[in-house]
Design a protein around this nucleic acid. Structure first.
Lengths: 210, 210
DNA sequence: TAGATTGTTAATCGATTAACAATC
DNA sequence: TAGATTGTTAATCGATTAACAATC
């Protein structure tokens, strides 16, 4: 898959296509046109066709798209069939919430470790996994080679934790701390800055009040 | 503040400006040029000046920007000085994590109620607030008139919960369930679809493997 | 074949960057 | 005044939408 680089805006729309196609499958709908899908999703049919054609011609003139085939294709494009091994650092409420969220395992992410520094939490069972002491982290990474580290620690700790996991070879981080991490270029980071989202909501409320 | 509509992309960048300016203040830096700020943030100076000028001329030729004044201005633009009253529906791990997250109160959001249907959770103390029974929700909203409802419930429940809070007059929802809510046009909804973010990370990992 | 709908090119729209006159 | 840096206009770049020939 060389060709020209797929724009990030398109990539960020793929999960939503995946979700809607999954719902169609649940409803036993096996065929859909870009126009039908566009009406359900509230986007233009043109955009759907353009987006999909970044990855290949999945449709058929005069027919539309085979839902199952398209769903499976997007699953592969998103890498959800790779069974990425995942660890969570931080077993506070957020870490626990993420561990227990069924959506991740359903999308092929396999949780294989949870770590915390707090003695009161270490040893606890979360989502079927025993929380390990943070001091065991680096050995664990070396042996288990997880693909993704989820950083659910306070922002005061996150820089150190990120360095630690990266030094031991993790190449993809999902960061919930309100900090922009500065890491080597080959390390992938996806930030979830919850405050940003809430402030955007606040902005809109503010505006409407005028 | 009429004039032309500020693009959503600009609004979504404001929280990040706010954060970096706050850090400058913490470091007792009271003056900054668009070029200096652009280097710290990894964006272009042009973009910063364009963005800020959507809201007014905050800078001064030959000098740059007064950090404190700019910070305060963005605080107001984002509505963080309004003390929006907030309730959380769902006191599972996610609800608790959000309740305990200090960043919200620091940015002026005031948590005034937490609700759940689970008898084992109702009555518990979370972030200094007693979890109330879900049946008390509609009366509570009528009397306390919260501005924002945070939906931290499973996706199977979220449609019903959203309808309930909207019917009782809440006009802004922060939704964590993996569903696109369909609500009256005057209700503001900001979605946090965590899976989408993780799938984007997964896509990038997948791509790099080729 | 006739009808439907894609894939793709061209046109439009919007966002980002560059440039520079205004001005502190 | 000379130097610095904004505010703003113009140029570029990219993303979205429209249109339609290709084709199932």
């Amino acid at each position: 898959m060389s060709g020209k680089q797929v724009p990030l805006v398109v990539i960020r729309r793929l999960p939503r296509y995946h979700r809607y196609l999954g719902e169609l499958l649940n409803n036993k709908i096996y065929r859909v046109s870009s126009t039908e899908l566009s009406e359900k999703m509230g986007v233009t049919a043109s955009q759907i066709r353009q987006d999909l054609n970044c990855f290949g011609g999945f449709g058929q003139q005069g027919y539309g798209y085979n839902v199952e085939m398209l769903y499976d294709s997007i699953t592969k494009i998103l890498g959800l069939n790779n069974g990425y091994k995942t660890i969570i650092i931080g077993a506070g409420n957020l870490g626990k919430a993420l561990a227990n969220y069924g959506g991740f395992s359903k999308r092929g992410f396999e949780l294989c470790g949870i770590f915390d520094t707090d003695e009161n939490v270490v040893g606890e069972e979360v989502a079927g996994i025993t929380v390990k002491d943070y001091t065991e982290l680096s050995d664990f990474i070396k042996h288990e080679k997880p693909d993704i580290a989820i950083l659910a620690v306070p922002k005061t700790a996150v820089t150190e934790v990120a360095d630690e996991v990266v030094q031991n070879g993790v190449k993809a981080l999902w960061n919930f701390a309100y900090v922009d991490l500065d890491l080597p270029g080959d390390v992938l980071v996806e930030n979830v800055h919850l405050s940003d989202s809430l402030m955007t909501l606040s902005y809109k409320m503010n505006k409407y009040g005028e």
